[in-house]
Write a protein that binds this DNA or RNA. Sequence first.
RNA 1: GGCGCCGUAGCUCAGUUGGUCAGAGCAUCCGGCUCAUAAUCGGAAGGUCAUCGGUUCGAUCCCGAUCGGCGCUACCA
Length: 502
Amino acid sequence: MSRFYVTTPIYYVNAEPHLGHAYTTIVGDALTRWHRLMGDDVKFLTGTDEHGQKIQQAAEAAGKTPQEFTDEVAPKFANAWDRLNIANDDFIRTTEPRHRTAVNELLQRCYDAGDIELDTYSGWYCVGCEAYYTEDELDEGHVCPIHKRPVEHFEEENYFFRLSRFQDRLLDWYAEHPDAIKPAHRANEALGLIKSGLRDFSVSRTTVDWGIPLPWDEDHVAYVWFDALTNYLSAVGFGDDSADYTDWWPVDYHLIGKDIIRFHCVYWPAMLMSAGVEPPKGYGVGGWLLVGGEKMSKSGGNAVNPLDLVDTTGVDGFRYYVLAETPYGSDGDFTYDGLVARYNADLANNLGNLAARVATVVGKKCDGVGPAPDPSSSLATAAADAYANTAKGWDDVAPSKALDATWSLIRATNAYLESNEPWKMEPGADVDRVMGDALEALRIVAVLAYPAVPETSQAIWERIGLSGEVVDQLLPDAATWGGYPGGLTVTKGDPLFPRITA
RNA sequence: GGCGCCGUAGCUCAGUUGGUCAGAGCAUCCGGCUCAUAAUCGGAAGGUCAUCGGUUCGAUCCCGAUCGGCGCUACCA
């Protein structure tokens, strides 16, 4: 049994969970569910980023301490993931003691390695961005181009991480691991960043209190890089003498958005190299889910609350849509019409209706008892192809391809029924053979579709009379033709995905 | 300015060493079926594979240019 460790970014708690957060988190959940079916020992981590000036200020504005403030917001993320049926194994918060332990350890190692040094930084600082700008990056009158508010001139002593020393080591590492970043075209972007030259970056602040003090200089608080990124190590016991973080490290995939490639694919591995820690094995870089063609933002007024949509399509309908609609790595455009169209076409018409028609015919022609499949059924090859391509899709961190492959078996089964017309046959061996095949296909579909639509898979599983849980199935055996035993009671039940007509 | 990407059926996109590569899904139209959530199955229509040149026996897939869309990055006075 191999281990498989996947992370999402930790989400900054200055905003409520929105569609963008949900997208990455659902991808991670589906990917890790697939690996559990493959028999891997899986750890899926998500969490919240809770330090920094913006949180401090938001807390003050709310008349709360930062800790009180984050204690109220962090559960909103955890609850949202519960609603979306996210099976994360851990939920890390950067305000936890275990995280402070790991940050201290990582900082100290880099400091001891001589890669963190004191220097002076001066420039125009935007509180909203928590970042410095050069003169020419600002709008007229020293105004932040993003927040459209005046920036402040600061000069402070900061500790700097000597990223500039790591260019060759990073290039060498990526040369030896050409498939580390998926999809491939995103890897070119990361390499471009490295080749274009690396500047040292500031890792501490003296102007902020809400954070983790540097272990060798309490006047400084760790800035976001060493704080937030380190969560991936905190959750596996880095810096904890009673644990061995290498049980899980290096991580298999950091799932990230395309906007944070630099920090995850350049800063982070360099920090780890400095500390003598293996860089991540891989990264899955997703695009943005745009709304109306524009990046979703609170201020833009187009933020979509994923939980509102669940009421329309169900949890599985929403999960399926975000996974299937957009090729991973590309930007997607979220639209309500698109959501409904895909729900109706793939879930109501294809999958849901298939389950319904099979149950009805079994009821009418087989006395409601599911027959066993034909070992040499023509559907068996469709099932084998579906499994192979579904597996490849998940291996490539390409959910839309994986699901398309799974759905190919659903389409093949609908066609199979059409060409055999069991509803025209008299009860007997011929009907049993056809319906056994259909039930077997449905069983395999339930397993293969499980990462995307876990509740539906379990429902199908039970309706065709199988006991136990889909989550406990093991691939590839569970997708091998012939697993449906026959002799089980098949029940129809309510439509799995009622068609949306509005 | 530099580096890179993209522009293939109405829509979203596949096409991984140039020779059945002109495809899939959705949408449309026609037909079949009636077990099923007016679902499903089959068929058709639809593209000079952005434009113009070049290499080649032959290019969507190689090279150059142009138009259009985009990403990252660097900025001189």
